[in-house]
Computed example of a mutant assay.
Amino acid sequence: MFALLLSLTLASAPAAFTATPDTTGVTVTTAPGKVWLEERSGQRLNFDLLVRNRSRDTLSLSKVEVSVYDRSGALVLRKFVDNNGFSPSVNGLSHRQFNPGTAALVFNPFHSFADDVEVGRMAYVFHFQTPKRAEKEARVEVWPERYKPLAALALPLTGRQLVWDGHDENAHHRRLDFLHPVAQQVGIRSNFMRYGHDFAVVTPTGELHTGNGKKNTDYPGFNQPVHAPAAGRVVAAYAAQPDNDNGQDYFSPRDMVGKDPLLLYGNYLVIDHGRGEFSLLGHLKQNSLTVKVGDEVRADQVLARVGSSGSSYFPHLHYELRTGKEMNVEGLPAYFRNFQLVRGSRTRSVASGAVDSGDIVLQKRK
C-alpha cells in the first residue's frame, strides 16, 4: 500500500506492561501500551519494544531474551536472539545501536506461538554493551490480552482476492517505524496500520493483472465495488485525489502535513462501527464515493470503487481496523466472517477468522 517511508492485559493484571525502574540509563516499554493476541495460524503478537537510551554511552544490543509464563505463573518456554555465531540472530533486529539521548523501535522478535502455549506473562530482558564492553540491562513485562472482535466484519471486496500485503512480521504495514525521521516529519506518531491488509482482486489463476500492468485497466480489481465491512456511520472521507496511472504519481507527502494526514491513503472512507472500532478503506477511485461524512451505512452497502490513489503502486484496496478516525491511533486485529480460504485446488469455508500476507480468499455475495 505504502511507499512513503522509504521504499495485553489479563483481568488480574494492573497494566498491559510493566517496565523495570531505570537504574542504568536505558529503559524498554511497549508500543502500543495494550498488547493483543491475535488468533492466526496459532497465536500472533504485533507490538514494538521502544528502547530509550538516556545514558551518555552508545549502547549495542547484544541479546534479547523472553520468558513466557502461563496464568498460574509457571514457565512455559524461554527463547532468545543473541550475538553468537558467524551470522548471529541479533542482526535480524530492526535496531541494534542506540546513541546517547535517543530512542528507537525494536520490532518484537518473538511474535508467533503454537496454540498449546498459554501466553500469560512475558518477561523480556535486553542486554546491552557499551564501547568499553560494560554490560547494561533493561527489563519489561507484558501481559497480552486475547482480542475479542466486536463488529461482525465481512471482506469488503467480492470474488477471488490476494492479500498482497498483510501484517505478518515481513509486511510493510507491520514494519512502520514511526520514529523514523521521515515519519516524524509528516506527523506519524504511531503504527495505525499495524493490522492492515492490501486486498487485490486476481484472475482465476491468481494473476494480479493482464498485459504489462502499467495501466489501471490492466488490473481486474480496478473499479470493482467496495462494500461496507459492517454497519456504522461515516466519520471521515475524501474523494478528489486523482488515481496514479501509467507511470503518473499524484501522491505528495507534503499534502499530508499541510492538508490532511490521511491523504496517505488517497481517497478514503472511515466508518465508526461503535464500541471503539473503526474501519478505514483507502486508495479508492477518484470521485467514486457514494456516501459522505454523517451518513449511516448498512453492512455490505456499496460505498465506493477500487482505485489507485494516494501512496499506491497499483489498484487495490487498503483496509484496516483501528481505534479512531485520526491518523495517530492504533490498529486492531480484524476477523472476517463467512468467506472461503483457497489453498491451491482445495477451498474451505471460514465462519470467522483472520487473513494475512499471501492468502487467497474468495468472498461471494448474492
Rank of each mutant, 00 (worst) to 15 (best):
A13M: 06
N99G: 05
L105T: 10
E296N: 12
V201D: 02
R298K: 15
R56Y: 01
F199E: 06
V355Q: 02
G258M: 11
D115S: 14
P131T: 04
L303Q: 08
D356E: 13
L303S: 01
H172Q: 13
E135I: 14
Y69F: 15
E135Q: 15
V234H: 03
L59I: 03
P220D: 05
A154P: 00
Y69A: 06
N246M: 08
F222P: 05
G324L: 03
V302S: 00
S72H: 13
S112G: 09
S89A: 15
G324C: 07
E65T: 11
D218A: 04
V234P: 00
G101H: 04
G25K: 10
G266D: 03
R348D: 07
K215D: 07
H127T: 14
F314M: 12
L45A: 09
S252Q: 15
A299T: 11
A299Q: 15
L264R: 09
L8F: 13
K366E: 15
K366V: 13
H227T: 05
V51D: 03
L317R: 05
Q185Y: 07
R365Y: 12
V201I: 12
S352P: 00
T29D: 12
G159N: 02
Q129L: 13
F336M: 11
N108Q: 07
A31N: 09
F107P: 04
N83H: 14
Y219V: 01
D82Y: 12
Q248T: 15
G92E: 10
I188A: 02
G85Y: 12
D82Q: 09
E135L: 14
Y250T: 03
I360T: 13
R133F: 05
V186S: 08
A11G: 04
L284N: 02
D359G: 06
P131H: 08
A304S: 13
T290A: 12
G331W: 08
S279L: 00
N83Q: 13
V35N: 14
A19E: 14
Q241W: 11
D198M: 01
H95A: 12
N328Q: 11
T290L: 15
L341V: 10
D48K: 06
V306R: 00
T130S: 12
G294D: 14
R337T: 11
R133V: 06
A171G: 11
R146C: 01
R121Q: 14
V350H: 02
G266I: 13
F339T: 03
S72D: 14
V68S: 02
L45Y: 07
T130E: 05
R343C: 08
K259H: 06
